[in-house]
Design a protein around this nucleic acid. Structure first.
Lengths: 202, 202
DNA sequence: TAATATGCGGAGGTATCCTCCGTTTTCAAG
DNA sequence: CTTGAAAACGGAGGATACCTCCGCATATTA
């Protein structure tokens, strides 16, 4: 009952722990880039010159590791959202952000499983990145909808899913072009819906 | 050099061979449905009560097996295309076919890798199904474009990719609804582009 | 029925995943 | 500085998967 403090939810990591955590992320980044998303965790541990047990303690699942690897880039994605909504009118901000999202996808080539984790869940997924991305997207979408220029009768994440589909399933080199075109088609499609709704209402 | 005949490209399979081939496909269908795309091939062989060697002889790669499993449904998809383009005007035919495609995806839940194989390649992929699907899509798209109602400034397969993205990356139960909405958004997006092009030209 | 082409089966080598637990290191209280 | 417990390390090892290889069994044909 005295429960003096209760170890803080994120207690300070021991120095060596933190060091090795970083080593692992760095190694993972290297190895994933080199061998693709299915690189073996054993390999990563070896590359980091750490035991496999250490890897598993820090990152209980493959996805946990992957998320850590890309958290930094995700932050960029998020800060981009804030800035755009300050500088552009809502629909343009959304459009630009989706383009940034395409760039973001570029750094995840072939890691479709990881993406699934990020984009996939309404679920109780462990990753906070997922929630943040969803939050940023929702903000942009809401603002854009409020202008009356577009309508969003689907889950906003579906936009990302469609774009990711184009990016991921495409073997071609110019998938990025395709994905950007897709951004415009999606926004035009949503705009048309809105106009039609207006017409029907009158 | 006498080269009397050269075994015909598809020589008649021995009776037991054909029988076991079917057993394997059936087992694979079962197991994939139950365990998802990453079900083990050992497991499938066990389920079919056949040796693993037999499985590998008939299907040298995982994808070969998967393709065999779904070839039947793919045929349905293809015949659907023919019928629709006979019965509906082009844009509607395309729309309906994309909706059928959504249904088709339902039978592939979680098999994103298999899908990648099917939808992915401009490449020299072994599968003929891939080429046929692309062919059907191209036909529908071309007809629709010729009406002037829509424009297709992207690779037609990108439509399927976007839809598959929504279907695959969505964990929710109502992904099918999302995917169907996406069909309409895409077509409206393409229609809008065409109108805009018309306006700009005048 | 005999010969042979075809198909079958599964042992086994390699690789990955993940757990478990004895050993080592850190860190701060005394 | 000493010391001891909490924290972290490391990697052996069991389970499972992939895929190959080749001796054995069976279907087919003459």
């Amino acid at each position: 009952m005295t429960d003096v403090e209760g170890p803080s939810p994120t207690r300070k990591l021991r120095a060596d722990g933190e060091r090795n955590r970083l080593r692992l992320i760095k190694a993972a980044k290297r190895v994933f880039a080199e061998k693709g998303a299915s690189a073996s965790l054993d390999q990563i541990a070896r590359d980091a010159e750490l035991g496999i047990g250490t890897l598993y303690r820090h990152f209980p699942t493959r996805d946990a590791l992957v998320e850590a690897v890309y958290r930094q880039e995700t932050e960029a994605l998020l800060s981009g959202a804030a800035q755009l909504s300050r500088e552009l009118e809502p629909v343009s901000a959304l459009r630009e952000w989706l383009r940034i999202f395409v760039e973001y996808l570029a750094s995840k080539q072939g890691m479709s499983e990881a993406l699934k984790t990020l984009i996939g869940g309404t679920e109780t997924l462990y990753g906070e990145s997922s929630a943040k991305v969803r939050g940023a997207l929702d903000t942009l979408v809401t603002a854009a909808v409020e202008t009356g220029e577009i309508r969003m009768h689907m889950e906003p994440l579906d936009l990302l899913r469609a774009i990711a589909g184009v990016a991921n399933l495409s073997p071609a080199q110019n998938w990025k072009r395709s994905a950007v075109l897709m951004v415009d088609v999606l926004l035009d499609g949503l705009r048309t819906e809105a106009r039609r709704a207006d017409l029907e209402r009158s």
